[in-house]
Amino acid sequence: MSNILVYALHYDGAINKNSLGAISEGARLAKQLGGEAHAILVGENIPQELAAGLGEYGATKVLTADGPDGLGQPVVDAMASAIQNGDYKYALFGGGLLGFEVGAGLAARLGAGVAMEITTVRAEGGELIAERPILGDSSISEIKYRSDVGIIIGRLNAFEITKDGAGAATVEAITYEPSKQSAQAQIVTRGEQRGADVDIEGANVLVAGGRGLGKAEGFDLCNDLAGAFGGNSAVAATRAVVDAGWYPYAGQIGQTGKTVAPKLYLAAGISGAIQHKVGMQASENIVAINKDANAPIFEFSDLGIVGDLNKILPKLTEAIKAKKGS
């Protein structure tokens, strides 16, 4: 058999969107391999309906295991046990942080091959072949697995969510032996929202600021510009500046932040790292201002301005106000 085990991350009673994409993708691939896709949920008091509901996305069976929420290694314990007692050829993860940690840990535990940041998977001759863009997405590598189990960690938003399942899945509670290392970690708080609650998901125009703003006050320039656009506009940020405390976490775009697709996304002082790109590349129009002509963001901008944001943003704000007033 060629079954695929998919990790489903959940938080606050809901399954992570990337996990739903991974389950949909797993179901599609399992069909081609002549097997089934099963999902696994690890946490405290997992509601039966939450687990069974994954059937809609194509999981035929859902395994549930008791464990602390938000830590990777207990999931490694549970998945390793499920794979050893089951019949799985691949383990699949959606993009995100925990999936990376769990997938890599599981590879080490099982002596399995692993590849991450996968954007496409196809079945060929009963095997799965994964594609990973490398070197700032300038090239794509193909990965084949030689190990008994192959571990595939997707890139954020790489797998489409489809509801091709046949209804509720069978739910099976499993038990496992927690490892010594799992017992050495304890989550104290999870999902703390730092800073004010800003809404960037509903905006048509997003002015996004990065480390190039220089200091927290640099966001004034972004706020002014968003104000000039008026209407449904908002200010967003990269992780670098959120971690630095310059902007609220709720306004962060990317792998561990929000995914957005506004009509206009305008980046000021943002390099365009992959983890940021995955959260905004679906925007309709991308404009970037960066003083470094080699910044990766210019590779995926529709309009790129090589220059100093401190000079450009204030004048751009005035010009837009003038244009709108006319």
Partner: peptide
């Protein structure tokens, strides 16, 4: 650390 739902605090031995 920042994970997919915000900041987490973890104690480790």
């Amino acid at each position: 650390r920042q994970a997919e739902y915000g900041y987490d605090t973890v104690k480790i031995q």
